[in-house]
Design a binder for these strands. Sequence first.
DNA 1: AGCACGCCGACT
DNA 2: GTCGGCGTGCTC
Length: 724
Amino acid sequence: MRTVEVIVDVPAHQTNQTYDYLIQEGQRVEVGMRVHVPFGNRNVEGFVLGIKEDAQEADFKFALKPVYAVLDEEPVLTHELIELAKYMCEQTASFMINALQTILPAALKVGRKQAVKVKTQEMVVRVIDGVVQPKAKKQFEAVEFLLGQRLPYSATELRKQFSAPIVQSLLQKGAIVTEEQEVLRSVYNSSVYEEYVKQPLTAAQQVAFDAISAGRESGQAMLLHGVTGSGKTEVYMQQIEAVVASGKQAIVLVPEIALTPQMVQRFVGRFGEAVAVLHSRLSNGERFDQWRLIERGEVKIVVGTRSAIFAPLTDIGLIVIDEEHDSSYKQENMPAYDTREMALWRADFHHCSVIFSSATPSLETYARAQVDRYLYVGIHERIAGLMMPEVKVIDMREELHAKNLSMFSRDLLAAIRDRLDKKEQIILLFNRRGYATFVKCRECGYVVECPNCDISLTYHKTSNKLHCHYCEHQEPLPQTCPNCTSPYIKLFGQGTQRLTEALQQEFPDARILRMDRDTTSQKGSHQAIFDTFSNLEADILVGTQMIAKGLDFPNVTLVGVLAADQTLNFPDFRASERAFQLLTQVSGRAGRQRAGTAIIQTYMPDHYAIQFAAKHDYQGFYQEEMKIRKQHYYPPYCHVSSLKATAASAKEAYDLLFAIYQEFKDDEAIQIYKPVPALIARVNNQYTYQCLLKYKDKKHTLARLYDLQQKYYKHNKVSLSISV
DNA sequence: AGCACGCCGACT
DNA sequence: GTCGGCGTGCTC
Ligand SMILES: [Zn+2]
Ligand SMILES: [Zn+2]
């Protein structure tokens, strides 16, 4: 008899194992397919991870139940992806079912109510010549046209080109035959993309290119470290070209905010239809179709964000992780995987290389390159012999002394005026955290908060209501302060919005564009802003972090950073690193084609992150930051994780974590800190506490963390989660 | 995770 | 006497 081993959709430590089921007569099952099975007194779905061809009843200590139904005709998981899921479990102390679910797009996950529909379209599948006489002019024309087209041809498109009645009579006469056919939703229209021509490499780029080629021979992982504007993208695009020419496939990962229409343009414009695009703003249907396109082997290059590392390519020749240092490569929720580790695993499986590309590599990656775990490939000059932008650091304390209380320093204002006169463009970065609009009383300072969470409510224009971003709660906008009944209760706008208004007052004639979450929430709005600024129809672009990445404007000669300290003051050991990276990145936007200047406004002008960024001195920053990391025992000298406990009562969450703390205190290999409330202590009336863990031995620690879930299991009362 | 089973308080 | 609270254990 044949049996299957199934991972069921019950995410709990007690059920984190395979369950055996009997395959029934006529059921066609393969490893990687989804099945419907009885489980206890209910029915669940699961993934087939193994098949036993000639199992004996005596092999099992329990009575086998039958597989109710096989849900797929083809496996949704390859052998490789199943192994990758196992690796993810080890790396994150997660359950197998969660790892498998994260790997798959929503449409192929298990246990979902809303099925994603296969899209169909009426297509002309056959054209019969000679049925329509030439005197029926229009109809004849349509037939002639179709004979010159590749079939199947969209009937809707044909109706648009000719007319509905004409197509109708063709159908009636039997001159054409149509059929409902499955179509894949496309996420870009390759015909509207102009070709992105191959750029000749500079000498420095060529050296890097050759070094990478050599590294790829032996499947080495590499760090491509090039200063801003050094043309790293062109180098790895030409490597991808070589990979595709050799018949293999490539994955390119890009940070969330850098996967702009311009980025897609580069790849589609260079490689055409062989490109699949996967990003978080695709609908489930679009994502599903991109996935199927990849599975069918029609895709050579996958460009996407974090989860695109799980693309079901079967013959990978290269994986590129662009802006390697970006924090969006780590998933924050429970399988808290690091995309870079997943990439290294897949590269190992396919015997190919990973290229970590960045102008400001993470300390972890750079340190690995230092000890030759990664091959170091550097490009230390900009293309076209351009100079690095000049960076001026402005001490905002002096502005205060000079009675300048505005958001703009005198130097920045003068520089803006100068560029406006010269008809050159300006980018201003305002990276203020807490970007959302909230409601605050002018008289008593009361801020409207969610009754279920420890967070202020945010205003949504569309519903004209206050919403909570962490739970379902919403309420109408109050007219008077609930605390003091004052009528002066007002919306506080986004940082960038206020900045734009202040800027407009200073420069009434300047054409100012704003790019932030608000102004890019609609489809196509990002492209529209980009086009306007590119076409020189605006002088100043004001925005959040998203203007620091993935956008190239040759006419920009001035970049201003309004509040450089925002990133530095963040309570995180990576704050300096983040600040250095952001400042380097954004000042690199200046002078892409001619000499540029960056002006950084700060209250901490002597901070080493700002100083080294101003001097474009990555090495210097690296040395200094490594000293601090060593001193305080932080990565890359160890690993850092946080352990969270969530429960309906704060005490329960705290007590459980404290018990774990007591136990871990005695483990020499793990440093554990006392439990503290999470950043947002209460969400949806659930309280979260967290402990920080530092350790060197990842395997040992993760094994212990996994065991915790068993040992401290409090039957659905307290839930534990681990993030890296 | 769900769902049943089972053991004690309180209620028509 | 029974109804229902939740603590405990199991699911091929
Ligand atoms: Zn008030
Ligand atoms: Zn809430």
